[in-house]
Amino acid sequence: MADMTAISIPAEVPRQKAPKPIVPRPIVNVSERHEARVAWMLAAPAMILIVLFIVAPVIAVITLGFTDFELGYSTFKFVGFENYAELFGDRTFRQSLWNTAIYTAIVAPASILLGLGVALLIESETVGRSFFRTAYFLPVASLLVAMATVWQYLLHPTIGPVNSMLAMVGLPGPNWLGSAGTVLYSLSMIGVWQTVGFNMILFLAGLTAIPRDLYSAAEIDGAKSPIDRFFLVTLPMLGPTTVFVTTISIINAVKVFETVKTLTEGGPNKASEVLLFTIYQEGFVYLRVGYASAMTVVFLAVLVVMMFAQYRLVDRKVHY
């Protein structure tokens, strides 16, 4: 299941202030003060926990990024930008960034296009809609670690069904997850398989939200073929959905971890090292918290850049 917590950009709408009735001042103050006090009480637990579990840790991780803190040592010192300098020259980290970029470049577009394609096919079909929807959505509702294990079996070089099938038609099956040349693509394939259904559901919702009248108007205006109507109505009307699906797909691809941890541990020969896995290794296996924190800051920066890109795009392009 995709984690969507990082996506939203609601334009903050300030509450409209009602014109104040002309009442003797003290009364207004009492009731307003009472309302504010109740509001504080209702919001306090959430506020405290946000500070405790989100704000403080983010500040801590940024601070730790400037230290040489390692778990198990009681002392640490500030080292300025040393960690970032080291990151720059770290072959593993550079490989990891590159792999994450490749993975994202494959998984995001493929799962968006397939999701849109499947949604369009299902939307225009009358038979078996709910069956197809279920079939494509099932991977989203399944435990990824478990399904990754199944994929490991399917892609097993000798006893796996995929290679058995290839052998039947006389093709040599590659060592999908075991060779440096194919591992990233195999993981990408699993990633696509896992996310298409999610995008499909969002596109389906986008499609049903398009007013039928627009298609009627398009027909009358002379859009004869379904393709004409697709470009005149469907595609532009899916604009907001597409921007949203794109951001969420990219962010989720950047956060790939489960399949790598379960299937390859970054191997073989770092061919499937990805950002989160590298952070995990450095921070929680080698316990170099300072250094891993610097990596985390880079990771956070990537997310922030994505969000702003979406922000701008929504503001400019798809606003009706």
Binding site: P211, D213, S216, L232, M237, G239, Y320
Partner: peptide, 10 residues
């Protein structure tokens, strides 16, 4: 049309 069915993106 009753809803006018104007293309909102144009």
């Amino acid at each position: 049309f009753q809803s006018y069915a104007l293309y909102p993106h144009l």
